[in-house]
Design a protein around this nucleic acid. Structure first.
Length: 112
DNA sequence: TTTCTCACA
DNA sequence: TGTGAGCA
């Protein structure tokens, strides 16, 4: 080992009192997410281009990923690792949302 | 230093 | 999909 100078990342979202669960509030940089998911920053940009994830943009035009996006990214990775193409992943996510909405409708109808 | 976009293999 | 150039 040459140097063990570890840099402490103070950019990580912390749950101070454990009351605030801002899954869409804490933002990660593309580098953080890439390391977190073990993928290349370029891959994250492709996902953004394909509108599979839509990270916010900071003033400098830099992508900011929330914990929600990271979670979505995990699901996306699962699919791509199974051989699903990006357009396919997009469709899956779209269908998932529809299923979710339909479930709500069903629940409502049952309650009547 | 990190991230950005664009471009090429 | 991965990598590099040039910029902010």
């Amino acid at each position: 080992m040459t140097d063990d100078s570890r840099q402490d990342d103070s950019q990580q979202p912390q749950q101070s009192a454990g009351l605030i669960e801002d899954t869409s509030a804490p933002f990660y940089t593309i580098g953080q997410v890439a390391e977190l998911l073990g993928m290349q920053p370029a891959a994250l940009r492709r996902l953004d281009e394909q509108e599979i994830v839509s990270p916010e943009r900071s003033e400098g035009g830099q992508r900011r990923y929330s914990q929600d996006e990271v979670q979505r990214l995990r699901e996306v990775l699962e699919l791509t690792e199974e051989g699903v193409t990006l357009p396919g992943v997009r469709k899956v996510l779209e269908l998932r949302q529809q299923v979710d909405e339909l479930k709500e409708e069903v629940a409502e109808l049952k309650g009547q």
